[in-house]
Write a protein that binds this DNA or RNA. Structure first.
Length: 504
RNA sequence: GGCCCGUUCGUCUAGGGGUUAGGACGUUAGAUUUUCAUUCUAGAAACAGGGGUUCGAUUCCCCUACGGGCUACCA
């Protein structure tokens, strides 16, 4: 019980959920489930200025879509709540004050503006073990004056007092031994003037209180890890400190830096899990769900960006990933995102999925085009006919809409040049033929078609494409005789008649 | 600038002191498919550079280069 594996994903509700975040969720989840541990969702809403309405609900929806269920969260509760940091506000001040008392932190009265102007004047200004001697804080102001300032309610923050000339090191589960010189780390703010903790304080306090055993986060956190390590020590919790793992970043496909929302818009692919519309700017960012990814494919693709099981296998179900996941098989370097490969994963998942599994997704796609109330058996058989030609879910509409409605337009250039009266006659005869003949079986139908072509002395090859265009409208789709049998005798005849007119 | 992390085909990666450096996406060529896609076959394509260590380094060590991250009262 004491050594239970507990991990957390701790987003701040400031906007949409980026795929880097989803991958962090996934690795947390895989690790937790593999070890029969718990996965916790904690909302880090300590920055009221950046708080965005609806972001938390959105994150919860993303998790739901991915099929990842937190064991504890603001929604489901748990024994370590509350799970929103804004609701834990009272706790943090206590710990910050404790640190001040112990001499590990201090009050600082400098305003944002003052510090800002310092940064203007002094190049590479940093609030650190040197510069704090020159600034307005409880280290430079006499004790009584500090007390008075606080009593008067003077705005102040609490900063960590970084030691000088100390080596701070730890073992990262992915990178191994990592170390920093304390002189290079600034005196980070722990408690803000509004009484809210910064990430640095909150993450340590809550990881401790929530008994987190392993902390996985993006590599961008590596430089602030010495602050966190020290806090664990100063608060006297060193023995309970979680094991750290800093995950490699997901990078832009073409250039420099980590992948951002803008890259998606610029290069034309989603970066968020689900569509996100900023409630204030109304700016919209595409999500993988909405462009037609299967959640399994999405997760599979993300996992492979930095992880593999050591074999050539690339397609993994969530269950498989849970059993095979291992931290030491995570690549250290960042990965450039490749949308082409991402789509390949989705196509593979569609191809390998049973029609019954795909059914609800395909139904939804058709409903968007007002094709509703399709008999399930019929839709199932159509899914099987076209699934291997679909890459994204909306492709099912492109690839199968003609089963439900006659083509509105024809790829006329594909027929017209070779269209002639002999062919018209053939199709008219074919209609007569169909009216009398057997229509159950596509092989019989094909035989019929070919026999008639031979009788009329026209090459079958000359007739196949026109027939396809008649039924489908374009040069695509499954076997043409399969399509004909599927849509039925009536409809086939109608379409041929309509097309003969259109081809004139 | 400083600090930290990283570096195998265009991309995601496997490998690891002696290999024809493997796979996948993409790409090229061909086959199949009387549409397109699928499928199949074949091809081009990589160990950043320099020093060590070693009989032998792509693999271990160091340096350089390059890439990335951080450098807020944001997370």
């Amino acid at each position: 019980m004491e050594n239970k594996i507990r991990v957390r994903f701790a987003p701040s509700p400031t906007g949409g959920l980026h795929i880097g975040g989803v991958r962090t969720i996934l690795f947390n989840y895989l690790f937790a489930k593999q070890n029969k541990g718990e996965f916790i969702l904690r909302i880090e809403d300590t920055d009221q200025a950046r708080f965005v309405e609806g972001a938390e609900e959105y994150i919860v929806n993303c998790l739901k879509w991915c099929g990842i269920t937190p064991d504890e969260s603001p929604q489901v509760g748990g024994n370590f709540g509350p799970y929103r940091q804004s609701e834990r506000k009272a706790d943090y001040r206590k710990y910050a004050e404790e640190l001040v008392k112990a001499g590990y932190a201090y009050y600082a009265f400098d305003t944002t503006e003052e510090l800002e102007s310092k940064r203007q004047v002094i190049e590479n200004f940093r609030y650190d073990h040197q510069t704090r001697k020159l600034l307005r804080n409880s280290l430079t102001i006499p004790h009584e004056a500090v007390e008075n300032l606080i009593k008067e309610g003077a705005p102040h923050v609490i900063r960590i007092k970084m030691p000088s000339d100390e080596n701070i090191s730890f073992i990262d589960l992915i990178r191994g031994h990592v170390s920093f010189n304390s002189n290079e780390v600034d005196d980070k703010v722990l408690l803000k003037a509004d009484g809210m903790p910064t990430y640095h304080l909150a993450v340590v306090v809550d990881d401790y209180l929530m008994k987190i055993s392993h902390a996985f986060r993006g590599e961008e956190w590596l430089p602030s890890s010495p602050v966190h390590i020290l806090l664990w020590k100063y608060l006297g919790w060193e023995d309970d400190m979680p094991k750290w793992a800093h995950l490699p970043l997901i990078l832009k496909p073409d250039g420099h830096g980590k992948l951002s929302k803008r890259d998606g818009q610029r290069l034309g692919f989603p970066v968020y899990a689900i569509n996100w519309i900023d409630p204030i700017t109304k700016e919209k960012a595409d999500g993988f769900k909405d462009v037609g990814f299967l959640p399994e494919a999405f997760l599979n693709m993300l996992a492979m960006l930095g992880w593999n099981d050591g074999t050539d296998q690339e397609i993994f179900s969530l269950e498989e990933m849970i059993s095979k996941f291992s931290l030491d098989r995570i690549h250290k370097g960042g990965a450039k995102f490749d949308y082409e490969k991402a789509k390949w994963y989705n196509a593979e998942w569609i191809k390998r999925s049973d029609a019954s599994y795909l059914l609800p997704y395909v139904k939804e796609v058709f409903e968007k085009h007002e094709i509703v109330d399709i008999p399930e058996d019929y839709l199932l058989s159509i899914i099987d006919m076209v699934k291997e030609r679909c890459i994204l879910l909306p492709d099912f509409y492109e690839q199968a809409a003609f089963f439900f409605k006659a083509p509105q337009a024809y790829d006329i250039n594909a027929v017209k040049p070779k269209w002639n009266t002999e062919k018209v006659e053939f199709f008219e005869a074919f209609i007569q033929n169909l009216k009398l003949g057997n229509f159950e079986n596509s092989a019989v139908l094909e035989q019929n078609f070919k026999t008639l072509a031979t009788e009329k002395n026209i090459k079958v090859g000359e007739l196949m494409l026109p027939f396809r265009i008649m039924l489908v409208g374009g040069k695509f789709g499954p076997q043409v005789f399969d399509i004909a049998t599927k849509i039925g005798k009536e409809e086939t005849i109608n379409r041929i008649e309509k097309a003969i007119e259109a081809f004139k």
